[in-house]
Design a protein around this nucleic acid. Structure first.
Lengths: 147, 147
DNA sequence: CGGTATCCCCTCTGATACTG
DNA sequence: CAGTATCAGAGGGGATACCG
């Protein structure tokens, strides 16, 4: 995301916003936090892997099995990012059949709590949302396609 | 709709799961929910707009000011999606200087609660994560760039 | 003021093939 | 088993220009 193209426009916008007024309904750092956590777990697989790892450690193949549809590439990539952020830990056993186990760190478990509330909310309201969407799409079919 | 995670596992599934690994597969519907809510609010701006709208109604330009860096295109697009999902409501006043106000619906406010806990988590742990990232990057600079 | 339309790059993601 | 390397497509998102 965040394609830093010399980033002159973004910096300018910040300055302008500050000049116009305080307008600090949402502090800038709050916004930064949202963006940060979203960049981290807002992708297609991170939260899924965390959810799948919550009950206990899993191996590479186990993860592949439990998250249907994920490619080796994305599994490896996402795992590495999670690991770098300290959300998941990787343990390799130097055995004849190579064995690697991935586990949720305490930090990762904390994030899973959040993910759970997110899922809870989605489960509680997804009917409502689907109805809203359907209604909006039948009213304005021109702007309905997403995904 | 609250389905408890391992409450309704079938007998056969349990046996199979026990045979392959330490943890039962994540229910497919759970996975679908995660994907669904992520597709909805996991993008770059949705949660930000919701956060900014929480204190009260805002106009198009106000949103643009309070979310520095957002382009008109993305503001319009995200707003429309939020509106279609019933998370945000739009009110246009037919006045000489056109005026449009965007407000959070009750549904949107509910999602904001979740966003808040996400932000809370990020605020509480972002130092930790940044340290982890820095450490990982200094150890393996080849795979550090993201964002 | 409050948008729409267009162009275009960049990133994410998947498919495929190869390695230790 | 547990990855790595490379290619290619799709779409998100920014810049810019234009309209009611």
């Amino acid at each position: 995301m965040e394609q830093t193209r010399e980033a002159k426009a973004t910096g300018g916008a910040e300055v302008v916003a500050a000049a116009i007024g305080p307008c600090a309904a949402i502090p800038a750092d709050r916004m930064a936090f949202i963006r940060e956590v979203l960049d981290r777990v807002g992708d297609k697989w991170s939260l899924l892997l965390i959810a799948v790892l919550e009950p206990g450690p899993l191996r590479y193949t186990g993860l592949q099995r439990q998250v249907p549809g994920i490619s080796q590439r994305m599994l490896t990539l996402t795992l590495r990012q999670l690991q770098q952020d300290g959300l998941v830990s990787r343990t390799a056993y130097a055995e004849v059949p190579p064995r690697v186990e991935y586990t949720l760190t305490p930090l990762g478990r904390g994030l899973h709590e959040i993910a759970t509330s997110l899922v809870g909310w989605a489960a509680a309201h997804h009917d409502e949302i689907r109805e809203n969407r359907a209604r909006a799409m039948s009213a304005q079919p021109s702007a309905g396609a997403r995904g």
